[in-house]
Amino acid sequence: MQVPAQFEYARATSVAHAIDLLRRHGPESRLVAGGHSLIPMMKLRIANPETLIDINDLAELTRIGLDSGLLRIGALVRHAELLDSAVVGEHFAIFRDAERVIADPIVRNWGTVGGSLCQADPSEDLSAAFSAVRAIAVIQGADGERTVPVREFHTGPYQTVVGAAEILTELRVPIRPGGGSAYTKVERRAGDWAVAAAGAVLWLDGNTVSDVGIGLTAVGAAHFAAEEAEDFLRGRPATEESFAAAGRIAAAHCNPVADQRGPVDYKRHLAGELTTRALRRAAARAAGAAVETEGA
């Protein structure tokens, strides 16, 4: 079995302590949460940090709660906790849908929400889901806290705005009544990364789409979002034709690359098809229908 290179290990006892450790150990230090992205990369020796700062003891980052119109999700919330959370499911079915198909149940027991976003893998599912709901990332550094819209959080593949001595502490999702959301993913096999996936959240005013968010992953969509398709839909009737047209726009504006998961034309097709499907399911939920989460 492949094994990581040597490093120093330190355990943070608080967010402030973690930041202090990051500062002291310098740019070759890395935070480790679940480690389910970082440790495999270290085994393959693609990542070779000199120091790992373990943040698993930071209970302050493990909370999920509602607070003045915001759903607040701590960075150290595990995938499995997000999946099981009743309050998350009640307000944003998109997360329940997504979590059912992220990795596998054992990985979900340990991988974290914050780790997912900070890993910034171009195929990360939660990046698309948080992008769809226009979440706000809360980042803390030595100088205090700042907030960044998730759509400005990723600066490129495996890159984010989180600085060398900063830590993502929380994601905040504004709650607005009358919405429905959904996530749909094509994978080659249970537990595989997405060939493509789309998430949608949609608010209806009668049968008119009053607002909409569309997230896409694995297809090279800027900011994991389909903004052109969102612009198109706003104010239009929530019909099959509108959703199909939105899908076509999303497909046209993404920029997938070929790999063993599929060729470009197929991924582009999926971007459209899955956008349409996610919108359809989100609309049904917004209209009050009970739509089951799809299994792995």
Binding site: D104, R188, R189, A190, G191, D192, W193, Q260, A296
Partner: peptide, 11 residues
């Protein structure tokens, strides 16, 4: 095993 896929119980 990320690229060489083996079937799971779900398939």
């Amino acid at each position: 095993f990320m690229d060489y896929l083996l079937p799971t119980a779900v398939e």
